[in-house]
Design a protein around this nucleic acid. Structure first.
Lengths: 208, 208
DNA sequence: AAGATTAACTTAACGCTGTTAAATTAACGT
DNA sequence: ACGTTAATTTAACAGCGTTAAGTTAATCTT
């Protein structure tokens, strides 16, 4: 029904409306099942209107991903208040898993689905900003434990330590998200698996 | 161009020809990029012919997955010859990672992609057959280490131990497969990550 | 041996998808 | 008052998985 002039602010608001609407649909239906037409209908526009704001579906997914990464980082920001460095690192792992299992479809989009990458320059997430970059939060937490001298003597590569801890938690979460319904496996309770992964990581990486 | 009667053997051969052709295409192009028409063209049939042997694309993917699981288990079968139980467990992890990183598109289909499950009854993989069931191989290896009394005293749930080790290796492999090209992360060499995950797991789970 | 039957296969077509081209609408500048 | 132009829609395309309808030729029946 619409006419002509639109302020830059209004354009931006429509962009984020599209993104937020799509994210909401993803929660319940999963990314792959949500169509461009469905997103458009939900906001009362025609499907082609989305292409005035995003080059294609992939570009929309990238921007949605950015918001998801911000949401993850935001959900973890209170962790920095925790006193002990080791406790902080463990709380980060717990928070990460909580996000993954609360928003499995978003986690899937972020970490388990093949996507075309964009350079971080044009991402809306500020790299190495602790409020926005969850991986940076992990690196800080690892750094703090390292500075306190808690890691085993043979562990000197802090990026390697961080990526290993990440992989451990990601392994538990992603198997849960993708394989929990697989009757082939005699799955143990997910909380027990998360717990053992955390303590195994700490026992394996920290000094005795 | 073809006429009528076909033996049960010939039907089976055509089935496996379809599966093998699709698997080969998956290796280079990825599962999502391979279309039914493309598979059919490759074997010189029309696309609709596939539907005489598989209910739908999902059913074809399930059967392909079965073959992939068999291939994984087969690639690990020599591990059982290794003498020490801990060495066996570690070799299993290395072999698993080797498979994952050599056939990333198949690994993605097997462990990272949402699929509708079928009951193990009608799977061509024999559950709890060490030659065919890779997860059973892992359980045996964990069992052997457990029987030898090498695990820490507070670890009594063998399924939990197996699933944690699996999650650790899966975490490293799946992050590598899906995120290795992400310039956001200062990725350390994949072999170093695999190595540290293995030693961390062993240090964390085994007695000192 | 001729005709009906039927398995194996193909061509046509449907509904859905992401996406593009063309048409429409209405506010603005002059 | 009127063209210009941005915002939006409708129409349409190519490709997908899939189904329906046809075609072919070997076998079965009598």
């Amino acid at each position: 029904m619409p006419p002509k002039p639109k302020t830059e602010l209004e354009r931006q608001q429509l962009r984020t409306l599209i993104i937020d609407t799509a994210r909401e649909l993803f929660v319940s239906h999963g990314v792959e099942a949500v169509t461009m037409r469905e997103i458009a209908k939900r906001i009362g526009y025609s499907a082609t209107s989305i292409y005035l704001h995003f080059a294609d579906r992939e570009a929309l997914l990238r921007d949605i991903c950015d918001i998801d990464f911000l949401a993850l980082a935001s959900s973890l920001k209170d962790v920095s208040k925790i006193a002990g460095p080791v406790e902080r690192l463990q709380a980060l792992g717990r928070g990460y898993a909580e996000f993954a299992l609360n928003y499995p479809n978003h986690y899937r989009l972020m970490f388990m689905t093949k996507r075309t990458m964009c350079d971080p320059q044009q991402s809306s997430v500020q790299q190495n900003n602790a409020e926005q970059d969850a991986y940076y939060q992990l690196k800080i937490a690892v750094n703090d434990v390292y500075a306190a001298g808690y890691f085993r003597g043979d562990l000197t590569d802090k990026a390697l330590i961080a990526q290993t801890i990440w992989a451990g938690m990601h392994g538990v979460c992603s198997l849960q998200i993708n394989m929990a319904n697989d009757v082939w496996i005699d799955w143990v309770d997910i909380n027990a698996r998360l717990q053992l992964m955390q303590t195994t990581m700490m026992r394996g990486l920290l000094k005795d």
